[in-house]
Design a protein around this nucleic acid. Structure first.
Ligand code: FES
Ligand code: FES
Lengths: 141, 141
DNA sequence: TTAATAAGAGATTTTTTTGTCTTTTATTGT
DNA sequence: ACAATAAAAGACAAAAAAATCTCTTATTAA
């Protein structure tokens, strides 16, 4: 479903949502250590998210990454599409050129349900709200 | 979700289920052309399926690939696990080391529910039956 | 104003996946 | 027997994804 880079991106954003803020920035090193993820690779991913204004950063001492209030209004769908491109949620599970209910492949019905269920959550839940639920339910990242 | 090889495998098996039989074998060349898939790559995949007794083949003139009655009783789950390994349907969508409802990641509920939907179909529908539905509903492969 | 810090950017390497080509082996019809 | 056929197997190449390293730029605090 998601590329490795995208998995790291989601986890990093959620980590920032829970552990960082305007006043408490976190460096790549810390995130990478906390998530047990390759440091330099994560750095690249965070750069890309930052360029697309999905996360915020400042350089220099006491600098690092965090989520602004604006950033918290975005969704994980934005994050996913930033890393894996815009077609993640509308391409055929068997790789056929078009995925549609009019011209379905043999797995379309189930695959579509799967994708849409996930898509819906990722699209309609703000990252800020998601973070609150993660803390409340003590979920793993 | 599935590797390219696995997508090709599923499509090839379904193609054989619909278009081949003990009495009407089909060669890699024909399958590759019909599915618009790289020929040599597909050959490798078919070999692997054949070694694992998920499809049947004979060498020599008028030889080729087909599905025996036994083969038709297998499921696409078997095909998928033969190519992509046994963990496809029980690994965390975020790549966390364990996926369980006791220790869920933030996407677990949705990911699990819909993954299971797909898993269920692939596990409980024999390839032979699936082929009949494909013909009946004129689905694309 | 300078040394230390941390992200940004670029280049490079490693690994995995995908795709191709060649040789061998088995089978069949002549 | 033999030429033709087609899969099996092995080696190889190309492309993509993942991961690493180095250098640059901005910022801050002493
Ligand atoms: S057509 Fe294949 S998943 Fe929709
Ligand atoms: S724990 Fe992540 S999908 Fe189940």
């Amino acid at each position: 479903m998601f590329s490795q880079a995208c998995k790291y991106a989601i986890r990093a954003v959620l980590y920032l949502a829970v552990h960082a803020s305007e006043g408490k920035k976190v460096g790549v090193k810390d995130i990478a250590a906390a998530l047990d993820v390759p440091k330099y690779f994560l750095a690249k991913i965070l750069q890309q998210l930052s360029r697309n204004n999905l996360i915020s950063s400042t350089k220099g001492p006491s600098g690092g990454f965090f989520l602004s209030e604006k950033n918290r209004e975005a969704t994980l769908k934005d994050v996913v599409e930033c890393i894996d491109g815009p077609d993640v949620f509308n391409s055929c599970i068997l790789g056929l050129p078009i995925c549609s209910s009019e011209n379905p492949c043999p797995l379309h019905v189930q695959a579509f349900a799967y994708r849409e269920g996930l898509h819906y959550q990722l699209k309609h839940q703000a990252i800020g709200d998601l973070a609150k639920r993660i803390e409340r339910e003590e979920q793993k990242i």
